[in-house]
Computed example of a mutant assay.
Amino acid sequence: MANTPQAKKRAKQAEKSRVRNAGQRSNLRTFIKKVLAAVRAGDKEQAQAAFKTAVPIIDSAVTKGLIHKNKAARSKSRLNARVKALVLGE
């Protein structure tokens, strides 16, 4: 357990950020899953709409320090490739 006042404060701050980050990470994953679900269902319009809403959320996760910018770029690229394959495939 933290002994110094600084360590006690950092422990409280770390717990606050852990809870906040967990919620934001869950939200991020939810929007990614919505895109993937629309692609699996074969719904082109819904997949494109879900992708358009997911991109800003992925970008905001980077600015908040939730994920690395390369992970965001990789996620957006993979989602876009699936959406495009769905649109071009039919």
Rank of each mutant, 00 (worst) to 15 (best):
residue 2 A to D: 11
residue 2 A to E: 14
residue 3 N to D: 08
residue 4 T to L: 13
residue 4 T to A: 09
residue 5 P to H: 11
residue 6 Q to S: 14
residue 6 Q to V: 08
residue 7 A to D: 12
residue 7 A to F: 05
residue 8 K to C: 07
residue 8 K to I: 14
residue 9 K to V: 13
residue 9 K to Y: 12
residue 10 R to A: 14
residue 10 R to N: 15
residue 10 R to L: 13
residue 11 A to Y: 09
residue 13 Q to N: 14
residue 14 A to C: 08
residue 14 A to M: 06
residue 14 A to P: 07
residue 14 A to F: 10
residue 15 E to Y: 11
residue 16 K to N: 14
residue 16 K to S: 15
residue 17 S to I: 10
residue 18 R to M: 12
residue 18 R to D: 11
residue 18 R to G: 10
residue 18 R to L: 09
residue 19 V to N: 10
residue 19 V to R: 01
residue 20 R to V: 14
residue 20 R to D: 15
residue 23 G to R: 06
residue 25 R to V: 03
residue 25 R to C: 00
residue 26 S to K: 10
residue 26 S to L: 10
residue 26 S to V: 10
residue 26 S to N: 12
residue 27 N to M: 06
residue 27 N to Y: 12
residue 29 R to D: 11
residue 30 T to L: 13
residue 30 T to E: 14
residue 31 F to K: 09
residue 31 F to H: 13
residue 32 I to S: 01
residue 32 I to N: 01
residue 33 K to D: 14
residue 34 K to W: 02
residue 36 L to F: 06
residue 36 L to A: 08
residue 38 A to C: 11
residue 38 A to N: 05
residue 39 V to M: 03
residue 39 V to R: 06
residue 39 V to Q: 02
residue 39 V to G: 04
residue 40 R to S: 10
residue 41 A to H: 05
residue 41 A to G: 05
residue 42 G to A: 04
residue 42 G to I: 02
residue 42 G to H: 06
residue 43 D to Y: 02
residue 43 D to N: 03
residue 43 D to P: 04
residue 44 K to T: 02
residue 44 K to E: 11
residue 44 K to M: 07
residue 46 Q to L: 02
residue 46 Q to N: 07
residue 47 A to P: 01
residue 48 Q to H: 05
residue 48 Q to A: 07
residue 48 Q to F: 02
residue 48 Q to M: 04
residue 49 A to Q: 07
residue 49 A to W: 02
residue 50 A to F: 07
residue 50 A to Y: 02
residue 51 F to M: 08
residue 51 F to L: 15
residue 53 T to L: 08
residue 54 A to N: 13
residue 55 V to A: 08
residue 55 V to S: 07
residue 56 P to H: 12
residue 57 I to M: 03
residue 58 I to R: 06
residue 59 D to H: 08
residue 59 D to F: 03
residue 60 S to Q: 15
residue 60 S to C: 08
residue 61 A to Y: 01
residue 61 A to D: 01
residue 62 V to E: 00
residue 63 T to K: 09
residue 63 T to L: 07
residue 63 T to P: 03
residue 65 G to L: 09
residue 66 L to M: 03
residue 66 L to Q: 01
residue 67 I to N: 01
residue 67 I to R: 00
residue 67 I to G: 01
residue 68 H to K: 01
residue 69 K to S: 01
residue 69 K to L: 00
residue 69 K to H: 01
residue 71 K to H: 12
residue 71 K to Q: 10
residue 72 A to S: 03
residue 72 A to G: 00
residue 73 A to T: 00
residue 74 R to P: 01
residue 75 S to V: 08
residue 76 K to N: 02
residue 76 K to H: 02
residue 79 L to Q: 09
residue 80 N to W: 12
residue 80 N to A: 15
residue 80 N to Y: 14
residue 81 A to K: 15
residue 81 A to L: 08
residue 81 A to Q: 15
residue 82 R to Q: 14
residue 83 V to H: 06
residue 83 V to Y: 05
residue 85 A to G: 06
residue 85 A to Y: 00
residue 86 L to H: 11
residue 86 L to G: 08
residue 87 V to N: 06
residue 89 G to C: 05
residue 90 E to R: 13
